[in-house]
Design a protein around this nucleic acid. Structure first.
Ligand code: FES
Ligand code: FES
Lengths: 151, 151
DNA sequence: CTGTAACTTGACTTTTCCGTACAGTTTGAG
DNA sequence: CTCAAACTGTACGGAAAAGTCAAGTTACAG
């Protein structure tokens, strides 16, 4: 299983904006440069984030994107959910018309139960992390990792 | 995020074979009919399952697929892992050449840590379920669900 | 005012993933 | 021996995702 690029890049962009400070903002070129993505691609992701209400854009020469809420209040799960949909939705079982009645709507499908369990496990992890948690990196420097022992 | 169809169908096929009993086997047309998938697609999935060592095929007029191990010993996580790869692998960070050193190999990347956490949560759920668990459905009948209260 | 730097939008191209088709090989029943 | 029923492998076409491009709008600096 894997995340879509929209989901991943969405998180990355929000984290970068969060690092600009509580009332700071970043432009598309800035985010592009810092995250190593093309400007066009960043623009596409940010458009979705704006439509979903996570960021606001100001136009013009001094424009940029800013968070609509404090980074501490944006749960990662929200973003993933808004950008990527669910693993198991209500239509899921409808798409299978297998010959066995038991795997349709009889409520006794092991696959269905397992999928929901996985979805819950993922959501639990994603919902207890916020963008702020990801934004405040420990900022370990290479020197600390290598030569921290002596000298 | 979502599972690939190979991952899902792989599980479904193994569950069907498991229901044929410990030493039973099923043919492609049988699985196809029971699971509601095309025969060509079932064949494709089973080929991978065979190459990964989960099933053995016997050819000829009385052929079919059987499990190589008891269903109780096949963990769902194994199958997903063999068919779909990992959410976060070692090359993951190499694919990002962002401008910030901190999100490359400095060991202080919040995204990387989160992804691993999600991967672990998924694996925990998938590894405590076996194909046998999914194969033995409670077989709840519609009457039990509706009129179990009286009469 | 004017020009530049930024956001906005839709369409387009590329890539990847799925499902299917088909031509082959094997095996056992009759 | 013959043939039908099964597996095996490759190759093709469509659909969805991912990424790109170009033309337009907005707003501030100067
Ligand atoms: S009933 Fe939904 S997957 Fe089986
Ligand atoms: S995602 Fe790997 S270092 Fe940031």
């Amino acid at each position: 299983m894997k995340f879509s690029t929209l989901e991943e890049f969405g998180i990355r962009c929000l984290v970068q904006i969060a690092r600009a400070g509580p009332s700071g903002a970043l432009t598309i070129p800035e985010i592009s440069e810092r995250e190593g993505l093309s400007e066009a691609n960043v623009a596409k992701v940010l458009r979705l984030l704006r439509q979903e209400g996570f960021v606001v854009a100001s136009r013009g020469k001094t424009g940029g994107y800013a968070l609509t809420r404090p980074a501490e209040e944006i749960r990662v799960g929200e973003v993933i959910h808004a950008l990527g949909g669910k693993l198991y939705d209500d239509e899921f079982c409808e798409r299978h018309s297998g010959g066995e009645e038991v795997c349709r709507h009889e409520g006794a499908c092991g696959i269905q139960a397992l999928w929901e369990e996985v979805q819950d496990a993922i959501d639990r992890v994603l919902n207890r992390k916020t963008i702020a948690d990801l934004a405040q990196t420990p900022l370990i420097r290479r020197e600390d990792l290598l030569g921290g022992r002596r000298s």
